[in-house]
């Protein structure tokens, strides 16, 4: 994010990062996660799932801030995000 002036506590604020996971065969293509992602990082993919819907895919994986909104708005239990720091095995 670009600031016109760097906030005084910019060094102290830690931006969380997440990784989005999609269980594609559960998706019914309602598009809620795509529409309401505050970072706008999701889009319909071109491929079909088992039921014939287009599941979402992550366009900019690095922009996810792990807010979980896609997870809680999804009516299908099909998308969720996990904290990236807890995912990386130690030593990497």
């Amino acid at each position: 994010m670009e600031f016109w002036r760097v906030p005084l506590d910019a060094q102290a604020i830690e931006i969380s990062r997440g990784e989005v996971h999609v269980i594609e065969d559960r998706c019914k293509g309602c598009g809620y996660c795509i529409e309401f992602c505050p970072r706008g990082i999701l889009a319909f993919s071109a491929r079909f799932n088992k039921k014939g819907y287009h599941p979402p895919e992550v366009l900019q994986p690095k922009s996810c801030v792990n807010c979980h909104y896609c997870e809680i708005i999804c009516p299908e239990f099909a998308i969720y995000s996990v904290d990236l720091s807890s995912l990386q095995p130690p030593g990497l």
Binding site: I23, K28, C30, Y53, E71, C74, E76, F77, V82
Partner: peptide, 26 residues
């Protein structure tokens, strides 16, 4: 990792019957 609610839903019955865009799932 699993979906955080995986332990509370009967995942063998998912996808559920609710229509695409239905609010009940949320």
């Amino acid at each position: 990792p699993e979906h955080p609610l995986e332990d509370l839903i009967r995942s063998d019955r998912i996808p559920h019957i609710w229509c695409p865009g239905c609010g009940i799932g949320t």
